[in-house]
Nucleic acid binder design. Structure first.
Lengths: 197, 197
DNA sequence: GATTGATTTCAATATTTTCTGAAACATTCT
DNA sequence: AGAATGTTTCAGAAAATATTGAAATCAATC
């Protein structure tokens, strides 16, 4: 089980090690994906393309992950929609090849952007609609309705901020998400007046 | 369908409106939750407690959401684990009552903290293990292994940063997540050297 | 220490999500 | 136009998840 020291490693041993490491990464990424509401297989296809770095075609993906052609087709299509993989071609080969975005931060930006668009924005829209139901124009409004509106406002404010942030940092032309994150990491604990204890 | 103007609204009408608005919020929050890998019902229970603001007991929750006792028990327990609701009591009443954290940012902090702990940290641990498999000490290491390690490093760096950020801003004693977010929102587009395009 | 009321657990069931595989559809080549 | 090759779709099958409900457990009261 202990890997042979690099000096004595044969080519075959190295290949096996590579494969093992890739498989483990694929499995971890898949687990993570499914915890966050992305289908395990879709995450695995993505992991495979990312970790190998190579463009792969449908058959290669099918074989490597032991999944059906239809499943590959659907997963790959979804990944294209998310904008985290690209279609490429090889001279003299009719097959479609797929290649993952190689920069992790660009990848995360794409994911964040899509998720906000798909899940936060619809929530905001619902909140708007709900607000229309409950006019708070007059102070004659019963107390409970007013309290409700206060709560809805709080949620709305918060998710709107998220949506704005995502446009700013995760948009296709967005400023660096990476640098923003590093900036925050360096920010002294306790900065800002909103600190709690 | 159009709501009566506030001046002419009867008490009953207001109550009905309130109920309708609450139900819609609960439904939206539930949808959102399930998109993010949280069970719909658990999210709905949380939404109910948040939107009413009142402590509620098991029977009230069962009735309002039309779900079984067992389901309420399990959902409530999970929400307690997440730290987004609290157990309370009423004098002369043996039942347990549950109340949601009312500050949205505190709530989001709790959620972020838990998710990082449950899903990002295990990924980091896996990455560590995978790294142990693939020694890159020697330059004798075949090219592919080296390339793999480069990719794993990129992922690791990125998620480690996330984990650190979560401790900083989402920890129980963490600095204000809200103020950090607002800070970012105000940050001029293009700040940082990581900008693209 | 038995009764009453509340809560938790968990095997069985129901629901939702994901996956397959083969047919339909495209595209390119001869 | 027809053959060959590649891709997508989608109804049904399989797997994964969530839910119920009744029995077991726990806790307070008499």
């Amino acid at each position: 089980m202990a890997p042979p020291s690099p000096e004595t490693m044969t080519h075959a041993e190295a290949a096996q090690l590579l494969r093992e490491a890739q498989d483990r990464f694929i499995a971890s990424w898949g687990r993570m994906g499914s915890a966050w509401g992305i289908s395990r297989t879709m995450a695995e296809v993505h992991a495979l393309l990312y970790v190998t770095g190579e463009p792969m075609n449908t058959d290669e993906i099918m074989d490597r992950l032991a999944i059906s052609r239809g499943n590959v087709s659907m997963s790959v299509r979804a990944l294209l929609d998310w904008g985290v993989i690209q279609k490429t071609h090889k001279r003299g080969d009719r097959k479609d090849y797929f290649q993952a975005e190689q920069d992790v931060w660009t990848m995360l930006r794409a994911i964040a952007r899509e998720r906000i668009k798909r899940e936060v924005d619809p929530l905001l829209q619902s909140l708007d609609e709900i607000r229309e139901l409950t006019p708070d124009t007059a102070r004659a409004t019963p107390e409970d309705l007013a309290a409700l509106n206060t709560r809805l406002d709080a949620v709305q404010e918060c998710f709107e901020l998220m949506s704005v942030l995502s446009q700013k940092f995760a948009g296709p032309t967005g400023a660096g998400l990476k640098s923003a994150a590093k900036l925050l990491a360096k920010m002294p604990t306790g900065a800002g007046k909103g600190e709690r204890r």
